[in-house]
Each structure stands twice: as C-alpha cells, then as structure tokens.
C-alpha cells in the first residue's frame, strides 16, 4: 500500500484502466487488496477513486459534496458516487455497513462506464485464458458458465466467471475480468491486467454429449444480445448492438454442447486451439 496526499492508496488495473483508490480507512484498503489480489504498481493512473464514509444517501451533506461533479451513480442506500465529466475522478461516499462490497460494486460501475466510453463492451459471460488466448463462454442463466469455470485446470486462468470487459484492438478483441474474480493466475505468464486476446466466442448448451460446431453470426448476435445486461438502457445508449455485431464479425463463434466433465476442453483445444 502506498501513500498519496496523506491518505493510503492502492492501484488496480481492469480493462486496461488503472484505478487508484484512496481512503483514510486503512482496514478497507487492506481488505480491497486481499479481495482483488492487487499489486503495487507504478503506472500512470486513469481514474482516481476517493472513498469516504459519509452520512446517508440523499442527505444535504452528501448532496453538497457532489455539487461540483457532473455525474452520479446511486448504489441504492449503500453508496453515492460522484464523477467528473471525463470519469477520471470519482468521489465515493459510503453510507452502509458493507464498505468492501459497496466499494467493489462502485468500482465495477466506474469501470463499466469507462469501458463503454472507450468503445468497449461488458458482457455477462465467463472468460478463461488458455495459454496466451482467451475463450468467452456465454448463455442464458444456468447454461453452464460457472460449470465451465469450475473445470478450469492447470494452464487455465479464470479471468471472469460473470462479467467480462472487451475492447477492440488491432482488428481483434482483448478481454479482462472484473476486479476480484481472477483465479489460477500463473505468475510466470503475461499479467492478466494487460488483457488477453480473444480466440473464440462460445455459446454454452448443456447436453449429454460434447460437441462443438460453428455458430452462424446472426444466431451468435441474437444469443449474445439476449443475455442480461447490467443496465440495458445505459448500455443501449452506447450502441451495444453495433459493438456486439462487430465482435461476432471479428471473432469466430461456436456452439458448445457439453456435459459436466472437463472433456470439452479437449474438444476446444483440438478444434479451435490449433486452428490459427
């Protein structure tokens, strides 16, 4: 943990966005470091997030603190976050009894907004890195995202089990998980915060046998658009259908019928992993 302007701070990178979190509450920062497995990083900061424990949502004190900011995220009764116009400075006011959870929820919202403003998207999908490539797994609730993650073995890094950030880069797509999700990080491989190239988009269908087949782009677009979004109205404002369409145009899409065993990884490796 470092110090900035007399306050303790930590730095984390998500979706290629570096966030410095400052607070006088050292115990909160320690818990955030543990939760996010954050490291000390000496890098340029994209977003500063200052955390304070203040009053109640909508109170005069809270409203006055946010007067100079241009945007606001209401976290029900748990927090109020004020953002400057560019989203580079965030004042997070915690009101509830769960500062860690509220800070993480706010951080996800701030990251999501930045990802969208930078032309990226955030999808309800699991993302697993195998070697230097990432595979995106999606489907309706119960399709098997968690099951796929549970079968992550040696050589696999679970970047996300729920929300995956994606950005277009050099004709392809690069992906990250949200903070606090990465499992099985391999210290000898490329750090996950630098982003992982997306190799394939895979629609999950639980079945009695395992089978991988190319997925028509129209069906890939339709099924990706059908999965829940964090905030549909907000996401639509950023032309999400255009972006998802670009994703399915750029990245091979597949349909994976799979049963609950790790055999599907062999199928993926044989049919996709070696097809470069």
């Amino acid at each position: 943990m470092a110090k900035q302007a007399g306050q303790e701070c930590l730095t984390t990178v998500v979706g290629g966005i570096s966030v410095r979190i400052t607070s006088v509450d050292t115990s909160l920062l320690v818990r955030l470091i543990e939760y996010m497995d954050a490291e000390e990083m000496d890098i340029p900061i994209d977003v500063t997030l200052r955390v304070e424990q203040v009053g109640e949502a909508g109170s005069p004190e809270v409203l006055s603190l946010g007067a100079s900011f241009s945007d606001c995220i209401e976290g029900e009764n748990e927090y109020t976050a004020y953002l400057n116009h560019s989203g580079t400075s965030v004042l997070l006011l915690l009101h509830g009894e769960y500062p860690l959870e509220a800070t993480m929820n706010c951080l996800r919202q701030v990251i999501r907004r930045r990802i969208y403003s930078e032309g990226g998207i955030v999808l309800h999908a699991a993302c697993i890195r195998q070697g230097s490539d990432a595979y995106l797994f999606y489907g309706p609730s119960g399709a098997g995202k968690s099951t796929v993650c549970s079968f992550a073995a040696a050589g696999h890094v679970v970047l996300s089990d729920d929300l995956t950030c994606l950005k277009r880069k050099a004709g392809g797509w690069v992906c990250w998980g949200m903070p606090g999700v990465v499992r099985n990080p391999n210290p000898e491989s490329t750090p996950v915060y630098t982003g992982t190239p997306l190799k394939a988009v895979i629609r999950l269908i639980q079945a009695s046998t395992t089978k991988l087949a190319p997925l028509h782009k129209s069906l890939a677009l339709a099924s990706l658009m059908a999965v829940p979004f964090e905030d549909t109205r907000f996401d639509m404002g950023f032309g999400i259908m255009e972006k998802v369409n670009r994703l399915v145009e750029d990245v091979p899409c597949y349909s994976l019928h799979f049963r609950k065993d790790p055999e599907f990884w062999d199928v993926i490796s044989q049919q996709i992993g070696q097809a470069s």
């Binding site: 309706p140 129209s218 677009l221 339709a222 099924s223 658009m225 059908a226 999965v227 829940p228 979004f229 549909t232 996401d235 639509m236 999400i240 259908m241």
Partner: peptide, 10 residues
C-alpha cells in the same frame, strides 16, 4: 436479428 436486449427475446 430482432432482439429485446438482455431480455432473452429474439
């Protein structure tokens, strides 16, 4: 492709 985003309606 016609969809209600996020609603599973396609």
């Amino acid at each position: 492709v016609i969809v209600q985003p996020g609603q599973g309606m396609v």
